[in-house]
Nucleic acid binder design. Sequence first.
DNA 1: TAAATAATGTGTAAAATTTACACATTATTG
DNA 2: CAATAATGTGTAAATTTTACACATTATTTA
Lengths: 246, 246
Amino acid sequence: MKKNTIPVLVHEPHMIKDAVKLVGSYPTVPLTVDCVIFGFEENELKVLVIKSDLDVFRDKFSLLGDIVKDNEELDDAAYRVLKERTGMNDVFLDQVRAFGHPNRHPGGRVITVVYCSLLNINHHELKIHDNELNWHNVATLKEMAFDHKAIVDACYAWLQKRIQEHPLGFNLLPEKFSLRELQNLYEAILGVSLDRRNFRKKFASMDLLIDIDEMEQDVPHRPGKLYKFNYEKYEKSKKKWIGIDF
Amino acid sequence: MKKNTIPVLVHEPHMIKDAVKLVGSYPTVPLTVDCVIFGFEENELKVLVIKSDLDVFRDKFSLLGDIVKDNEELDDAAYRVLKERTGMNDVFLDQVRAFGHPNRHPGGRVITVVYCSLLNINHHELKIHDNELNWHNVATLKEMAFDHKAIVDACYAWLQKRIQEHPLGFNLLPEKFSLRELQNLYEAILGVSLDRRNFRKKFASMDLLIDIDEMEQDVPHRPGKLYKFNYEKYEKSKKKWIGIDF
DNA sequence: TAAATAATGTGTAAAATTTACACATTATTG
DNA sequence: CAATAATGTGTAAATTTTACACATTATTTA
């Protein structure tokens, strides 16, 4: 989870008073965060949704979100939503962007800052199994409450792009995974099929997978080797790639 | 400028009332937009800054921003700031993300949604020449008011990445430009030097530059050919590139 | 326990792309 | 008219990407 560093400011009291007065004159709007929480199960990309609690959107799915509290960091608010709903810590979370169409909420203007999260569905149990919280296949998601479908679409596009350039995808898998699982993940998210030999060769050449010398268990066929992603090495060797292509 | 399409909702009045009541119970915060407006001049990437009007930040530069008005689209607010300050229409503008650290403004919490804009410095004259509005070299920008330095840094990183994958850069150049100007632009933004022959070959192979059969004027050396970017062709042939690399 | 199954694991040749690199040409300037 | 400062261009080597097939292995089923 990224944090911005903010310079500590030391100022004269009267200067602060002016600034406070200025901000006091600003109009204000309600602010929320919404989390697009992706998971991967049965070779399908899923997103965590809940039945809307608003009558206007009865039977429609909505994203998990909440208001941002006073003096709460945006990132922290998103993280709080995530934790409350999934019970998980240390989950990948990144801001995508803000959505602020004046009519996006039927109750009046609400700005929402959207976060995308990736987690391993099997590493947690949803806190509330009965309250209509569920994993929905992203590909078959239709209408949603508010502008949440547009938000999911934006996050899905974000993910498709992001997963090709950064090692995010591993957050959706168990810590130990086989190359087949990894390939299935990429194929599902990108919506393409990839050549198995070339896919493996690609990851082999990156040299960022640790062969942990274990095999898959309980698969109904020849078990594959298990790997971990070498985050440490990746962090050290992050390359700044230069190339023009559009 | 991108717009989100929002479904038109038709609902029972009592449902709306519930929603209105709900939103009425939300805490609210002041909301602004800030524009990181990039220009390119004398082979340097510049950003449009203004002396802060807050005493606490006396002599520090700040970005151009404003509050978001009631029922104003975020994009529109950013566009309004841009137009008020530069007098220009049809300028490239894209949201980068929201910044919301509780202490980012000394006057109290203010959320800002940050936009990045690219324009041709020579296509406009700043509306107000005297009010300390000026183009500052991005590379030498030091301290700024608020968290604006962090915002500029984020936008600069955004631009560096973006310019390699999308034809944004042309917004910083005159409509007709030489290959040298284009290369200088890439070199300045990416902070690298590129091989001239390979650079030209790259753009030639994309086949997205229109040779308009004109030459540079008033250059103190052999003039180069002028080109336009073929936006029409680009839009038709946008490729969805698949490749894993990190 | 043997055969069928369903996946793993691996290599090579061709094609495409990227990189490195140098010299003749042409307007302008002095 | 000579000097300058940039334009414009091609090729060979290296690297990366792509296309493609078969032997192996654990499990399941007959």
